[in-house]
Amino acid sequence: MSGTAPSEGMFDCRNAYVATLEELAADDPRIVAVVNDSVGSSKLGKFRDRFPERLVNVGIAEQNMVGVGAGLANGGKVPFVSGAGCFLTARAMEQIKVDCAYSQANVKLCGISSGVAYGELGATHHSIEDVAWLRAIDKLTVIVPADPWQTGQAIRAAVAHDGPVYLRISRMPVPELVRPDAPFRIGVAETLHDGGDLAIVASGTLVHRAVAAAELLAADGIGARVINMATVSPIDEAALAQAAATGAIVTAEEGLAHGGLGGAVAEWCARHAPVPMRMLGFPGFLPTGSAEWLMEQHGLTATGIVAAAREVLQSKRGG
């Protein structure tokens, strides 16, 4: 998509994904890649050239791709099953549920170009339901990295973790985030901006926008705590308790707000610490348009997050 080509200082997380995978595969013969004719869109051409016998291309057959991944795990491999997020998750949902999660197979599922990266191609190619679907499945870890560094860290963590993981890999350009020098851990969120008036809980491509929003709010004397909730399942409850302690929460994600990260935060707050919330995300099937245009239309920008923050602060103050 021409609309998602990274500009200077912006990165396509697929590059961090494949670079890390190649680095790990050089030392770990268990690592294999499984693709549904998606060598190019998964950027695995170099991996195939370096490790030809460890690139399993099943052709255009997602159900088989995930089942084969579970079988490779049974045979002692650590398969990275990579395909466009829209097809990988929707077509192979029962294989993800039964062969991977219920069987606790050591499969790493990589939903490439997730969210609305394929904006102009329409709702068939948008993967905005994936997080909502997959976080409903027991014993499946769901990770939505926010930048290249975290993508690489998440790949390493997924290899170290014995069990099924879904990694949502974006091609939408994002900057490297400035963050405290702390290693990524599955299930542990990171706080990227401090503030006590409200919390912004974001994932993936929305995290850098949330940081920008917090800076805009700070200029107006509003303190926003920004939490990068990279692991959506299992969610970091301690981080949510801190978010709820501010008394107001905005969630932001490149996917359905209902059922996704927003849904997860709302469920936790309803049970433990009800606070006013605004949930930024997509409402459902989207029209054609570039990814950036679709995100602007639904407030998934720094200014959109600022507007939602002002609204939720009104609710917090009883306005």
């Binding site: 159900q63 579970a70 490779l72 795990a73 045979g75 398969p79 294989q95």
Partner: peptide, 8 residues
């Protein structure tokens, strides 16, 4: 399909 993956 899982059996095919094992065989691969």
């Amino acid at each position: 399909p899982v059996g095919v993956g094992i065989a691969i």
